[in-house]
């Protein structure tokens, strides 16, 4: 029984680490630019498809392919910011949200057009399974946890230590003051989109390795990301980490002990719960935008 609990916990953490990556991308965009970047899930799927085809076309391993795809994702992020969000930066928030919905349709269906409707599994070659006292630890799942952890650490260092990271934090704290200090807010916006999209791509690759990339996967992913964002607190990196893991583990346990049919409802319940218990924190932030 204990082994089963530990097994479920491990599986939940693996899935939670992917949620964390998705939420991190969303939370830095939302926290700094105030945009609910709904197309994030489709960008993630795009990255997963791209990685798959890079592996096939270039015959390279999954990690180099993922790095290339993340660079491609970053570029896509910059383009989206410039072409679609930038023109409505001073319009009411509803406009940027509708743009986000439009982008979702465009990217999601372009994925279909470019990559087809078959589900795609990113080949990794990680097929070994380690067993510790009845606890099955597939190599692939361990690598997923490690990859997610490495990316989170890298992001933290980038935000805390680099010059651009400092500029990002300055804009997040006080946009007007940052502009007065001579920070180029447009550059910051582009940087944030590049960073976030690269993280999203990484999440897409991990989903594709663990399960599959297919039409319809991105919608669920982005909602989970937003749930984590609300759960962990807006713009908070530690919040996204903890929130992602909490959501992953609670879904797994709910699936095992309550109902596998309704596990996806958990994200919604958590969102509503947090908003009911401490809406003022969230409302204050959204008014600031």
């Amino acid at each position: 029984m204990l082994v089963d609990l530990l097994q479920q916990l491990f599986n939940g953490l693996v899935i939670g680490s992917i949620y964390t990556l998705v939420a991190l991308g969303l939370t830095i965009i939302f926290g700094i630019l105030g945009i609910a970047h709904f197309a994030h899930g489709s960008v993630a799927m795009f990255g997963g498809y791209l990685t798959y085809f890079l592996i096939l076309a270039l015959g390279i391993g999954v990690f180099p392919a993922m790095a290339l795809a993340m660079a491609g994702g970053a570029l896509l992020g910059v383009v989206l910011e410039r072409v679609a969000y930038y023109p409505v930066r001073n319009a009411p928030p509803i406009n940027s949200f509708i743009i986000a919905l439009g982008l979702t349709l465009i990217i999601e269906k372009s994925n279909l057009l470019l990559f087809g409707v078959d589900q795609i599994i990113v080949p990794t070659g990680f097929n070994r399974i380690f067993t510790i006292g009845g606890l099955a630890l597939p190599e692939l799942r361990i690598y997923i946890l490690l990859t997610a952890a490495a990316l989170v650490v890298a992001l933290t260092i980038l935000i805390q230590k680099s010059w651009m990271g400092m500029a990002v934090r300055a804009v997040a704290q006080n946009r007007a003051a940052a502009i007065l200090m001579g920070i180029n807010v447009h550059a910051v916006s582009m940087f944030v989109f590049a960073l976030s999209s690269a993280l999203g791509v990484a999440a897409g690759v991990l989903v594709g390795a663990l399960f599959a990339i297919a039409p319809g996967v991105s919608g669920g992913l982005v909602v989970k990301g937003f749930a984590v964002l609300i759960l962990g607190g807006l713009g908070s990196i530690p919040g996204a980490i903890v929130g992602g893991l909490v959501l992953g583990v609670s879904e797994t346990f709910a699936s095992a002990f309550v109902s596998s049919a309704y596990k996806d409802v958990i994200a919604f319940l958590l969102m509503i719960g947090v908003l009911l218990v401490k809406p003022e924190g969230i409302m204050r932030r959204s008014v600031a935008r």
Partner: peptide
Amino acid sequence: TFGGQDRDMTAQLTKVRG
């Protein structure tokens, strides 16, 4: 059971395995 979009049956399998 699992639904039409599910690709993760680990939780169900772990439970039955127990």
